[in-house]
Amino acid sequence: MQLQAIQKGRFTYLWEDNHSLIEQVILSCIKDRKIVDEGHKLLVQGEAVSSLYLVESGRVSMGVTARNGRVFQLGTLECESQLFGEMEFFTGYTCQMDIIALEAIEIAVIDGVLLQQALQLHPHLSLFFASAIAIDYQDTVEIFTRRMLYPIAYNIAYDIYHQHLNDLPVDGFGKHYLEAERFGTSDRVYRRAVKELENLGLISKQRHTIKIENLDALKKYVEQK
């Protein structure tokens, strides 16, 4: 979730009026600041979470590894005052995803006990967390559901079209095998699906980039499913 005024949802007006208090409360719970290197895991799948992490800027990736070794990458995120570990803070569950720094970034470590005490003093701020978590949850479930219910080629086309519209909650990767993992498949199947879209005249592939060749046809392909 972002430590910023939420621009959508039922209680939007509250965040605009109370954002300075929200920010003040979170910042008061910071117990350490440090710079971590590229590849550092802020949160580790399956591990207990005792602290939350605030990343003011920098890019991270989010992914899940199953016991059979298969990997699903949710995508990458360009952080803007992004808070990680908030769901585990409320549930007490172990971490569901690896959150990995894709570059050297500065992180602020937020003490879970201090945050709990702060929310007890300002219980209405829990409404901010509830709203932000609900929005992130629905965005994530939408991604997972679409990946499960639609063919790989459709999911790639959908992603390309909405990346063009710049309205997706997460971004992709520059490497093929990571893009394949983002669509829950192998590199070979991913390449075949991209080729299918090329043969339809919707896109063209140029080295490590994909270019839209027919935006109207791509839009029609995505919206007719």
Rank of each mutant, 00 (worst) to 15 (best):
Q4H: 11
Q4N: 10
G9L: 06
R10E: 11
F11H: 04
Y13W: 11
Y13T: 14
L14H: 08
W15T: 15
D17M: 08
D17A: 14
L21D: 13
I22V: 14
I22R: 05
E23D: 12
Q24S: 15
L27V: 14
I30K: 03
K31A: 09
D32V: 08
R33P: 07
K34E: 13
K34V: 15
E38V: 15
G39D: 02
A48Y: 14
S51E: 15
Y53W: 11
V55F: 02
V55Q: 00
E56D: 06
S57A: 12
R59F: 14
V60M: 01
M62A: 13
T65S: 14
A66G: 08
A66I: 07
G69K: 12
F72K: 13
F72V: 06
Q73E: 14
L77R: 11
C79F: 04
F84M: 03
G85T: 00
E88A: 10
T91G: 05
Y93C: 10
Y93D: 07
T94W: 14
M97A: 11
D98Q: 04
I99S: 01
A104V: 12
I107E: 10
A108H: 06
G112W: 00
Q116V: 11
L119K: 01
Q120L: 05
L121V: 13
L121P: 08
H122I: 02
P123Q: 00
P123D: 01
L125G: 03
S126I: 13
F128G: 04
F129P: 00
A132K: 01
A132N: 07
I133H: 02
I133Q: 05
I135P: 06
I135T: 06
Q138N: 13
D139A: 09
T140E: 04
T140S: 11
I143T: 07
R146E: 09
R147K: 08
L149C: 13
L149R: 09
I152Q: 03
A153G: 00
I160Q: 05
H162S: 05
L165S: 05
N166L: 07
D167I: 05
G172P: 05
G172Y: 03
G174M: 08
K175D: 09
L178S: 03
E179H: 10
E179R: 10
E179L: 13
E181I: 05
T185H: 04
V189E: 03
Y190H: 00
R192D: 15
V194A: 07
K195I: 09
K195C: 07
E196V: 10
L197K: 00
E198N: 04
E198R: 06
G201D: 03
I203A: 01
K205Q: 10
I210S: 03
N214L: 06
D216A: 10
A217D: 09
Y221C: 08
E223W: 13
Q224S: 07
K225V: 09
K225Y: 06
K225T: 15
